[in-house]
């Protein structure tokens, strides 16, 4: 599995990471090495195995009662916000 420059660029875009020009060959190299390590997984036959998404077998989702337990804390929560106005989080204009 060889990683191409275009792969790196499209993954970086999906992940919303900006890469500088010198970073691209480095990522090509590192990702290729990591995926080379991962290639070992093809050594074992997994055709009859159910994928395991969760480490504990037999657990099931619990359900919460439909109750409102929260109060308005937006002033506290917005203390960490980079930019707010009239209770809204601000971002550069979104064009649709």
């Amino acid at each position: 599995m060889s990683i191409k420059r275009s792969d790196i660029e499209s993954i970086a875009h999906l992940a919303r990471l900006a890469l500088s020009e010198p970073e691209i060959p480095r990522y090509i190299d590192e990702l290729s090495r990591i995926l080379g390590l991962v290639e070992q997984l093809t050594r074992v036959d997994t055709s009859a195995v159910t994928p395991m998404a969760h480490p504990l077998p037999g657990q099931r989702q619990r359900l919460r009662a439909d109750a409102v337990t929260e109060t308005d804390q937006h002033q506290l929560y917005q203390r960490n916000a980079p930019q707010v106005s009239t209770g809204l989080y601000l971002v550069p204009r979104v064009i649709e």
Partner: peptide, 28 residues
């Protein structure tokens, strides 16, 4: 429902901005 699908925040329409968004809704 009265509360949200994954948190205990209210779902009422028309509340003041972000007054019904708790830590889970804000993805803290």
């Amino acid at each position: 429902t009265r509360s949200k699908i994954f948190s205990g925040s209210a779902t009422a329409y028309g509340a003041a901005p972000n007054s019904q968004a708790n830590l889970v809704d804000l993805a803290y």
